[in-house]
Design a protein around this nucleic acid. Structure first.
Length: 627
DNA sequence: CTAGGGTTAG
């Protein structure tokens, strides 16, 4: 908590004229650095004391700070301040309009126009109006007004705001049209569109514009790094991040976030170590912003101990830091620690959990099968914290109930939930049906999924796998036909790992693309041979094709995480942890192989699946075979 | 004085 009041020191030796200007400057910066209504009122009193309450400059600044603190009409304070200025200039009118952005900025504008003589509107008077436009048509009207005033038709500031208005209402094409018609553009025009394209997932258009933009600064570079990372293209994100550094633009805290997140997605430990060095160079590690991202990144890279260490180093822990840590512990199967941290947060700090925190806590319960605790937190969230559960929370509950086998109850929950179940909810139910082989409810869930996400080829495959596990081969072949008709899968299952030099090696089921493929095959055969001696029997039911047992065994051997395991054995030191990242859930057979391998070859193996970690040590897994 | 922002279920 900042409790220091702004200090206004007055240099008495200055001549009177400059004293007045200096005083204004001092008061002005005091307003900027104020952090509470109480302080603002004190400064306001000072302004009165010095007879400066008619200053448009100071009052405009006060208004702006007030809206930052959420003090806007109908709170009378802004109007009171405004009314004390006998002849407000255009700047103050604009500030007053802006402070009404959530009520009726247009009515203030009309009031301004009715003054005699009317203060000339400024470009950012219109920008303030445009910013608060509730709809496209209102925005277009305001823009027409702007043009009719003359002199603004090619105003950069107005046009940039117009672009933003279109982007805010998801009309990227219109924004692009404005952009294309601009005779003069600045870096903000370019960046706005780059961001707009990346938000709609069109990174190729974003990149094209970015490359064309004549100037690049830390913000526009960051937009690209963040864009790639938010669109699940971590390698490109890091490439752009490195290019930014090479171009001589210094990065700041915000620009690091995209890069940290990209490393989290890659999930490999060398990138974790690399980004830590980058972060340490600017010594912002203890900030909550970077700290939370780092906690998340370490967790996702399997370095949970480093995540915890990082968490402790954050100087001002907020709900993001706690949520990131809880989510990390959950992903590593440490439900008890995740819950303990949540309890510590609510009992020993002022940090209030938000909806995401509860998603994290419920996920922790889910990964450990803690049904009763999950129910308790679900109701605590409503009763004590007044957070209305949304579809995401119901997804967690459906997953929690379904995962332990309460499929009927999970289905009832989905049917009775007060918000419309979305694809994630039905997906959780379908996932539960896969684990516990319940083709009846799976059929219900997947029919809804086919409606909600008709392009989601994965749902057909999961349903088909459930039918396969239940031996319903007629149904399987019907679904296979549909899947074939839909074309190739966009995201095939793959596993990847890093060799010591930071190169990422990716493997696909049954592929022989890697230059060391032959060696890997031999290594795997040798390893499986040793496992067989220790009692390994391939889990044939992990294969969801109706083929012979010999063929099933051949398919199992080709699973990408086994290829990665072989590659890891070949290329890493005997004391290194073999770290594998996988983009889908690990299958039962691979899980058995990893467990046994960890004891037979005395190596620690860590596999990150699409949602959690498996740490294999001495023949057991941290997930206790519940995943 | 408008452009980039950490935690999120299947």
């Amino acid at each position: 908590m900042k409790s220091n009041s702004p200090v206004i020191s007055f240099p008495p030796h200055l001549p009177f004229l400059s004293r007045s200007r200096t005083l204004k400057t001092l008061l002005f910066s005091a307003i900027s650095s104020s952090s509470s209504l109480h302080q603002l009122r004190q400064i306001h009193a000072l302004i009165h004391l010095f007879g400066l309450h008619a200053s448009s400059l100071l009052v405009a600044k006060l208004l702006r700070r007030l809206s930052d603190l959420g003090i806007v009409p109908p709170n009378p304070y802004p109007s009171l301040l405004f009314s004390q200025v006998p002849s407000p200039n255009s700047f103050l009118w604009t500030a007053f309009i802006r402070s009404h952005s959530f009520s009726s900025p247009l009515s203030i504008y009309l009031l301004m126009r009715r003054q005699r003589p009317p203060p000339p509107p400024l470009s950012f008077t219109f920008s303030a109006l445009l910013k608060s436009a509730q709809s496209i048509s209102e925005g277009i009207q305001i823009h027409a007004q702007t043009i009719s005033m003359g002199g603004f038709d090619s105003d950069l500031f107005v046009l940039n705001t117009l672009i933003d208005m279109y982007i805010r209402s998801n009309h990227v094409t219109n924004a692009r049209q404005v952009f294309d018609e601009m005779r003069v553009r600045d870096i903000l025009s370019w960046t706005s569109l780059v961001v707009a394209y990346s938000r709609i997932g069109d990174m190729d258009s974003a990149a094209e514009l970015f490359e064309q933009s004549p100037a690049k600064d830390v913000v526009s570079w960051t937009a690209m790094v963040g864009g790639y990372s938010q669109n699940a293209r971590p390698r490109e994100a890091l490439t752009v991040f490195k290019r930014m550094q090479a171009s001589g633009v210094a990065f700041d805290e915000i620009s690091l976030l995209g890069a940290i997140n990209a490393c989290a997605q890659l999930g490999t430990s060398n990138y974790a170590i690399w980004i830590r060095q980058v972060v340490d160079r600017v010594a912002v590690r203890k900030s909550g912003l970077v700290g939370s991202a780092m906690v998340d990144m370490y967790s996702k890279c399997g370095l949970i101990v480093d995540a915890q260490r990082m968490f402790l180093e954050i100087s001002e822990k907020d709900v993001y830091s706690y949520s990131a840590m809880i989510s990390g512990l959950a992903a590593h199967g440490r439900a008890a620690d995740a819950i303990a941290l949540f309890e510590e947060m609510v009992t020993t700090t002022d940090v209030r959990p938000n909806r995401v925190t509860f998603i994290n806590v419920l996920t922790a319960c889910s990964h450990a099968g803690l049904v009763e605790e999950g129910r308790r937190y679900f109701s605590l969230m409503k009763k004590k914290y007044r957070i209305t559960p949304d579809a995401d929370h119901y997804t967690c509950m459906t997953d929690l109930l379904g995962r332990v086998g309460f499929i009927v109850e999970a289905h009832e929950l989905v049917q009775s939930m007060p918000v419309e179940p979305n694809a994630a909810v039905w997906g959780a139910l379908l996932g539960a049906c896969r684990i516990h082989v319940n083709p009846e409810i799976a059929k219900i869930a997947s029919e809804r999924l086919f409606q909600l996400e008709p392009e989601g080829i994965g749902h057909y495959i999961v349903l088909s796998n459930i039918y396969a596990s239940a031996g319903m081969w007629d149904e399987v072949s019907k679904l296979r036909k549909i899947v074939r008709g839909m074309g190739l899968r966009k995201n095939p299952a793959s596993s990847w790992m890093e060799s010591g030099d930071g190169v990422i090696h990716e493997f696909f089921a049954g592929d022989e693309l890697h230059p060391r493929s032959k060696e890997m095959k031999e290594t795997l055969e040798y390893l499986l041979g040793r496992l067989r001696l220790a009692g390994y029997v391939p889990v044939l039911r992990s294969v969801v094709y109706d083929v012979s047992d010999v063929e099933k065994e051949r398919i199992l051997k080709g699973h990408s995480e086994k290829l990665a395991l072989a590659f890891g054995v070949l290329t890493t030191g005997v004391r290194d942890v073999i770290r594998i990242v996988k983009n889908v859930r690990i299958c039962e057979d691979c899980h058995v192989v990893m467990k046994m391998a960890s004891s037979v070859i005395e190596r620690e193996i860590a596999v990150r699946d699409n949602l959690r970690f498996h740490h294999f040590r001495n023949g057991v897994c941290s997930c206790c075979d519940f995943w």
